[in-house]
Amino acid sequence: MHELGVVFHVIKIVEEVAAENQLTEVESVTLELGEVSGVIESYLQNCWKWAVRKRSEILKDASLKIEMIPAVTYCEDCRKIYGTMEHGKICPHCGSDNTYLQRGNEFQIKEISAC
């Protein structure tokens, strides 16, 4: 379960941020995840609910918000972009596989709401 590992790391970082800013209660945590980051949102939510209650005093009632970032691939040969989820590695414009992921594997904590 990849998601559980992710959740533990999120908790650790948010606790650091909370300590730095003298916060005692976190209401919500917002993540930015790329479509191809490989994390499944429903699993992540389940792991989150379990882990915050178990592991963290300041986060125990915090909700998790997820902003999915669409995956976009760039083709080096025809210099166009296309949706990675629909077309994968092969460019739908010219058929080349000389392509790379431009965005969509983001994996970060965007912000928290806390007091």
């Binding site: 994996f107 970060q108 928290i112």
Partner: peptide, 8 residues
Amino acid sequence: VIEVKRSI
């Protein structure tokens, strides 16, 4: 709201 912008 506190901006974090840190990689997980």
